[in-house]
Design a protein around this nucleic acid. Structure first.
Lengths: 206, 206
DNA sequence: CGAAAACCGCACCTGCGGTACAGTAAATCG
DNA sequence: CGATTTACTGTACCGCAGGTGCGGTTTTCG
């Protein structure tokens, strides 16, 4: 009852690394099973087809990412009472985390799937969509708290600002991968931080 | 000497649309030739293999994108003498252009290739890299001009700021495609615009 | 010990990328 | 106009990957 899950997650580890490194289409089942030391039958015992593997990977990826964001920004808020400064610390921590990845961020599974759309079924696409919307909601909540206390120098929609966090990460990852420069993603996160720092300003007494 | 080029570019049109819609791996040569009304032999007469098609598509994509940026920001600068306000107008125009795309931005070929890495050879990857670097250079030049005249509220690296333009577009495209919401990309471009507006401020006399 | 769970082995089918090569229609140029 | 490229068509074939089917075997756990 346990060895099965172990093998399954080993397959998923190998598959995720391969898919992020060279794309979904370029990752063959054969090379996965070879590295995992199992047979084709063994693979299809765990996953009905390649799409099922993709879905399992995405679900795991999203939950790990959620936990990461939760932990990071929760810890940041503990370091500073103020919602704005807490969030800024969170972004700093995020940037440092990304900078510590030895070969740069390996890639975002959601973006991988987004650029391989029709290889997947409706379920996988809706999963991606829901994850993006949940991130919007998450950061929107943080910005709502900040906006309660601070004035804004520019009248921007807080949903768009929340999306900017995801967009910055996604854009930074694409650039980091394309340029083969691990620094770009952390830099871009700090640029976002700079914007948020400038955008919110002490409330003026009226 | 002309009909050949015509067929070739028709193949490329069909291929580009298909690749952006469903990824490179999911786009078969067979469906391309079917839609183009030619045979497999005809396809391989124009392109030695799938990688050659990818390379040709990328080259065309980059040059079109370059022309687009050139035209757009040149025109914007004509509308306003000031480098900052000219650039802000350029971003506004870019946002409007993206908003006018009926089904949202179809996707960036460079990002597509970045998430399908090993499907392509070194040449294609270097082409992507050079394009990204040229965009950095392009926007860096614009920001240099702005920085000559304006103070900055936050001391950020102008290369990172230049990269932010590309990153915003890439991130916005990923989000627009994932959420199936054409508005996200133009919104994110306007967020970038808001940042640049806040970042640069009238030079104080010393 | 016995029954699931977790595989292995093998055969086989399909579709796709790609090759090879001979033949042909159409455009172009002297 | 005639000859030569250019731009294809048609056919046959190869190898690989995804995927199916199913019978057999080992491992694990209650």
């Amino acid at each position: 009852m346990k060895k099965g899950q172990e093998t399954k997650s080993r397959i998923m580890d190998i598959a995720e690394a391969a898919i992020l490194a060279k794309g979904f289409g370029a990752t063959s089942i054969e090379e996965i099973i070879e590295e995992a030391g199992i047979t084709k039958s063994g693979f299809f015992y765990h996953f009905s087809d390649k799409n099922a593997l993709a879905k399992a990977l995405l679900e795991r990826y999203i939950s790990i990412e959620d936990e990461l964001f939760d932990g990071l920004f929760d810890r940041a808020q503990e370091l500073h009472d103020d919602p704005l400064h807490g969030f800024l610390i969170g972004l700093k921590l995020l940037s440092e985390l990304m900078a510590d990845l030895p070969n740069g961020h390996p890639g975002c599974l959601i973006a991988t799937y987004c650029y391989n759309e029709r290889l997947f079924d409706k379920e996988v696409r809706e999963l991606s969509q829901r994850a993006m919307l949940s991130w919007r909601k998450r950061f929107r909540k943080a910005f709502d708290k900040i906006a309660e206390k601070y004035d804004m120098r520019d009248d921007v929609d807080l949903d768009h600002l929340a999306d900017m966090v995801s967009a910055t990460c996604e854009g930074g990852i694409v650039m980091t991968k394309t340029l083969r420069d691990p620094d770009v993603l952390p830099q871009q996160i700090l640029m976002l931080r700079s914007y948020i720092k400038l955008l919110f300003t002490e409330r003026k007494p009226n």
